[in-house]
């Protein structure tokens, strides 16, 4: 029973915080562009509205795969978020470790790719293939950068990484700062936000893999993306800032860290043009990997 409770909590809390984060993102974007921005409840209203819209399935597509894809992605985010929540608030490791987290966090991308491929639409095929290339590109620096906290903690488990930072966070070291920068840019690509929104590229391939989605399917994908918008910064906080600390003044710090990460992501997305996919691959396999490798080497030497 506790288990069901945990999952429902994991889902509900993540969804709520994800929607709030999405509102922050949209509000900041609007302010940057001298607009007023949406009201607080707008992300939530959007999803409810989408649920009421008609479901349209492309002719000749695999109906099962097309409708299953968003759900698979949602399951991936729910699992990843539950993994983080449980290890954040309970003593002792549970369910999985750093490796599991990395693998679970690729499931949402996988679901977008599958959904795009199942749409029977050339634009979706193109967009999904770009998403796949993006995954290949950022995975290398992302693994290396998130390895730095593991090396500092000397422990693979999420709870171990959190506990071992109680006397000094990873971001307090030089290697930690470098790794944080790399990981942040990888998160930008994981969220497919500008400058790495190549898979969706509205102006050229009309939302790519999502082009055929409407109604509930799109609602689930939206929800999944909003939940990721919370889960990924949460993962970064766990890895680099010792998790959420909810005692006394630390609440303020945690909040600051979280809002800081989200604001950085939003600012990057509002001040950059979209790059091409080959530029993105070069960027991640080139400078980012070099930086991340340097961070790992520094961390192994205790700097």
């Amino acid at each position: 029973m506790t288990f069901v409770y945990l999952i429902v909590f994991g889902f509900a809390a993540t969804a709520a915080l994800g929607l709030v984060t999405s509102w922050i993102d949209r509000k900041v974007t609007a302010r940057v562009q001298y607009r007023v921005g949406p009201p607080f409840l707008q992300p939530f209203i959007d999803i409810v509205k989408l649920l009421g819209k008609e479901t349209v399935i492309p002719a000749g597509a695999s109906r099962g795969t097309f409708l299953m894809a968003p759900v698979i992605g949602l399951a991936g985010v729910v699992a990843a978020a539950t993994l983080f929540w449980v290890n954040q608030f309970f003593e002792g490791g549970f369910m999985g470790d750093w490796i599991v987290a990395i693998y679970l966090l690729t499931v949402p991308s996988l679901s977008i790719i599958l959904g795009g491929f199942a749409s029977r639409n050339p634009l979706a095929s193109l967009g999904a293939s770009r998403e796949m290339k993006l995954v290949m590109a950022y995975e290398l620096p992302f693994i290396l950068a998130t390895l730095v906290p593991v090396i500092w903690a000397g422990d693979l488990s999420i709870s171990g990484i959190i506990e071992n930072q109680s006397d000094g966070i990873t971001a307090g070291h030089l290697s930690g700062i470098i790794a944080l920068i790399v990981a942040l840019l990888c998160v930008q690509a994981k969220l497919a936000l500008v400058p790495f929104d190549i898979p969706e590229a509205e102006t050229e391939i009309v939302e790519g893999p999502l082009v055929e989605y409407s109604g509930p399917g799109l609602a689930v994908f939206r929800l999944m993306k909003n939940m990721l918008l919370f889960t990924l910064p949460f993962f970064l906080i766990i890895l680099f800032f010792g998790g959420m600390r909810l005692n006394g003044i630390n609440i303020l710090w945690t909040l600051l860290e979280y809002v800081g990460i989200v604001a950085l992501i939003t600012v990057i997305r509002n001040t950059n043009p979209r790059v091409r996919i080959d530029q993105a691959v070069r960027f991640f396999w080139g400078p980012m990997t070099v930086l991340a490798t340097a961070a790992v080497v520094l961390a192994l030497n205790g700097i």
Binding site: V4, L51, T55, V56, G60, V71, L74, V78
Partner: peptide, 23 residues
């Protein structure tokens, strides 16, 4: 559980009267 949640969200929507349209 994640799959079940997704399915429930679907049920609350218009999934049962889906329309088939050319891509």
């Amino acid at each position: 559980a994640g799959l079940v949640i997704g399915y429930l969200i679907y049920l609350s929507g218009s999934i049962r009267k889906a329309r088939i349209v050319a891509p």
